[in-house]
Design a protein around this nucleic acid. Structure first.
Lengths: 306, 306
DNA sequence: ATCAGAGATATTCTATATATATGGAAAATC
DNA sequence: GATTTTCCATATATATAGAATATCTCTGAT
């Protein structure tokens, strides 16, 4: 059975044109080199070298083999190096999911930028979906990790790691009496001032979420909010707000969506409304690219507002 | 040092997802397989498999390596096969030279056709030149073999093998009194009838050749030919004949050059004029493609005239 | 709790790649 | 032309390391 050793020896002999010199270069003695070359020739079924009295020369068959042998040896090195790079997280594929509201978080944008820059050999595939779909995709191995907004409990097979928490802000139509355009800093509005407003809220299909927190905060502020419309995705609530259907409470990072017709205000209330961001992943050992991602998002801090 | 064995084992394990089964497929026991996989992982510097209780699964690094390992194993087979084909003369490069007069011989055309058809992987390079240049190119390894018309002695390092001999014919301007157009078969002319003609002959730079044979034949026919012009290449004589500068005597195979203004006639004389065709090559062992060529030209017989 | 299945480990064995010594053929040198 | 040198091949010995056997450990299932 042919081994790489045979090819290494063959290339050395072809390059030196000399068995003894090639043996020296290879750090072995000449007789074993003779034998290994003979073994290779036996495997090929034809001589690869013409033995002259002052050395050896390639036959036609040898000339055909030489470039191929070189390429193979190079490919082997390349393959091992690729595997190493993959293990180090500099290469490979990474499928990342995120809920619609996480898509606008600077952490995600910053992550993508970092990966493109420092590990361009990672093929990154991004997928947006609701939390349930993302979790299912994780379990089905279609995703390696996902940014989600609700903890989804702590399933046995998954790790849901809290990354950060950001304030929630009020989104309201820009022609709303509470909106104060022209000011640089967004106004601060007390939650109880929203008692008479109609709310447009995102509601998770199941389980606790931001929806319940908002209701609880309003109750703590002394009123029960009137929810005029529920939206299936958090982004949709903004469209509804822009259309004047009511006000909404959204994570701060979504406020950079300076869509036409929307104004934002900071909130003040008995319960501080916070939107958490979690990273979900399988409990399986972290692979290279993934652990790179995890290291990055754990260390990430928002850039100071410019 | 990594060997192909490691890659073979790796691919088998990756495909089976199971060390014991893979070992069975490879015809070895499970423990050595474990060890070889571990050795490969040590070489890569990272695990390639995740060990589960029901088998093993590829890590990211393993997934990166798998297609490359498969490709390498395929390339090795391909390289050996290419070397074998080269040795068998089905592949490789073959540089063939021929003198201008041999270029028109049907043997050469037939040879090229045969090679293109039955061994398309042979890169054939054809080179025309005078005998001296061809012999020099042969010695300098720029040619593998050459068709020449004169024996050039029998140098120590070369083999000059006679292939065949063909009759020589008379080439004369088509408006010459001896030319009889309209007849299908070329007329037969006695050499002595050319006593008053002017001859245009090809003359080798040095050594004996057709030139001397022609002179001798004329002498045997009872006259000393009047050579009006000598041409550096045999093809040029035909142009001169067409221009009416005289008559020439050329190998039969060149008569298929039905150039305008030339008529051909068969010759009859005391000395039968023959033009030999030789194959010259180095004395070195015949390589695959070359021995294929040699076998072919040795066996070649002219196709019956159609 | 026990058992079965799968991979890892330890030890022994064996195949084989390598080393040493030697031979033989062809140039090169005297 | 004899001798020396050079270089590859062969023969035998040795050491390495890959493979076999037996055993262990871990995990999940019954």
């Amino acid at each position: 059975m042919i081994e790489l050793r045979h090819l290494r020896y063959f290339v050395a002999v072809a390059e030196e044109g000399h068995l003894t010199r090639a043996a020296g270069r290879l750090g072995i003695q000449q007789p074993p080199l003779s034998q290994q070359i003979q073994a290779l020739e036996r495997e090929v079924g034809a001589p690869l070298f013409l033995r002259h009295s002052r050395g050896v020369a390639l036959t036609d068959a040898g000339q055909t083999l030489l470039p191929r042998a070189r390429a193979i040896l190079g490919d082997v090195d390349g393959a091992l190096e690729a595997a190493r790079r993959t293990a180090r997280g500099q290469m490979g594929r990474l499928a990342v999911g995120f809920t619609s509201s996480a898509a606008f978080h600077p952490l995600v944008a910053s992550l993508v930028r970092m990966l493109r820059q420092s590990a361009p050999e990672i093929v990154l595939s991004l997928e947006e979906g609701n939390t349930q779909d993302l979790i299912a995709a994780l379990r089905a191995n279609r995703l390696d990790t996902a940014f989600v907004r609700s903890p989804v409990g702590q399933p046995e097979d998954l790790v849901i790691e809290p990354l950060l928490s950001e304030a929630m802000v009020l989104a309201l139509p820009d022609r709303h009496p509470l909106a104060t355009p022209g000011r640089r800093k967004p106004p601060v509005i007390a939650l109880r001032d929203l008692a008479g407003e109609t709310f447009v809220l995102y509601r998770r299909p199941s389980g606790p979420g931001l929806y319940d927190e908002i209701i609880a905060a309003c109750r703590a502020a002394g009123f029960s909010p009137h929810v005029g419309q529920e939206a299936p995705r958090m982004v949709s609530t903004l469209s509804l707000v822009a259309a004047g259907m009511g006000v909404s409470i959204i994570p701060e990072s979504m406020a950079r969506l300076a869509g036409d017709g929307i104004a934002y205000a900071r909130l003040d209330g008995a319960i501080r409304l916070e939107a958490p961001l979690y990273l979900a992943r399988r409990k399986a050992p972290e692979t290279g690219a993934l652990s790179r991602l995890i290291d990055y998002v754990r260390a990430w801090r928002p850039a100071p507002a410019s």
